[in-house]
Amino acid sequence: MTEPMRITPIAADRVEAGRLRYYDIVMAAFVAILLLSNVLGAGKVAQVWLPGIGDWPFGAGILFFPISYIIGDVLTEVYGYARARRVIWVGFAATLFMAGMAWVVVALPPAPDWRNQAAYETVFGQVPRIVFASMCAFWAGEFVNSYVLARMKVLTAGRHLWMRTIGSTVAGQAVDSLIFYPLAFWGAEGWTPHLVVVVLFTQWALKVGWEVLLTPLTYWVVGALKRAEGLDVYDRGTDFTPFRARV
């Protein structure tokens, strides 16, 4: 019978990049979910019926965007802050490129016999203010999420993963929401200050709720990756500046 792979605690700066088997796959998953949640979910307002409340509208992107935070938790927990930081910068650059590409493609004059320009603009047209708010919120929120989780891991000596994942999401999503909604909608037509605050706290609570519900899955993925890599990375002595992409 094959013996289970031993998980070795190790400082983040002692990890050899060549021995990481699944880091690039997790990075690709993070970027893919980030881009798809922005393309497929951001522009649609969906509706569900809730008992005792009735019809309740919500932004469809909330179904999938929080998964990027969960993958961010997995990256930091398994591979350390520096490698999570690199992935955040890759995601930021990919989102910026996607926004620029969408603007160029929407702005191109359509062929005379192509009748779908209005629908295309509705789906892929992006308001610069909202794009700017989204980029700022993503960057700040993801780094807060990763920083809090990495520091808590050292302080708890690797115990209570649920506390770290939920605690980091509470902080990261709070920063994300506090930046995005005022920047994107404060003073905008149809958005009263009260509505901005209500939507801000509603979306924050829903995103944190997603993290709580998916905690068992997070445990399983983290455990499987640690066993596969044979490592348990701790950020002792890590430079936590967000302003670099090198590991």
Rank of each mutant, 00 (worst) to 15 (best):
T238Y: 00
T156Y: 12
L40F: 15
D232N: 12
I53E: 04
R115T: 14
G158E: 01
L213H: 00
F92K: 05
V104L: 14
R151F: 04
D239G: 09
S134I: 02
M163N: 08
G18A: 11
T241N: 14
W49T: 15
G167I: 10
G167E: 02
Y120R: 08
A29T: 06
W204M: 01
I88R: 02
P51M: 07
W56K: 12
R227P: 03
L20F: 08
P9R: 06
P182M: 06
K44E: 07
L214Q: 11
G91D: 08
D235V: 02
L217Q: 07
M5P: 11
W56S: 09
Y69P: 04
P9C: 06
M5N: 15
S37M: 07
A107I: 00
I70K: 02
A188N: 04
R85T: 11
M152D: 04
A119T: 12
I88M: 08
R19H: 04
L183M: 15
A28R: 01
M135I: 14
E142Q: 15
W114D: 06
I130V: 15
V87C: 10
T215F: 11
V39Y: 10
W210E: 10
R19L: 03
K226D: 01
L75F: 06
L225K: 03
V199K: 14
T192W: 05
E229C: 02
V144Q: 08
L36Q: 01
P4D: 10
M101R: 05
F30T: 09
P51D: 07
G41E: 04
A28Y: 06
P242R: 11
S168G: 04
Q117R: 13
M98A: 14
H160A: 13
A111P: 01
P66S: 12
A171V: 11
A12G: 04
L231D: 00
F201K: 07
R21A: 11
I179A: 05
Q126V: 12
T122C: 00
V144K: 06
P4M: 08
L40S: 03
D13S: 13
L108K: 09
A228G: 09
Y79K: 08
F30S: 10
A245V: 14
A28L: 12
I130Q: 13
Y181N: 12
E211R: 05
F30Y: 14
W56R: 07
P216Q: 07
G91I: 09
Q173V: 13
E16R: 15
G187V: 04
S177V: 07
F97K: 01
V105L: 15
A42C: 02
P182Y: 03
T202S: 13
G209H: 01
T218G: 02
A84H: 02
L195Q: 13
I179C: 06
S177P: 04
G100A: 07
A228I: 07
A228W: 08
Y219L: 14
A184H: 05
G52Q: 02
I71D: 03
M101C: 07
Y81H: 08
I71G: 06
G43A: 12
W210L: 14
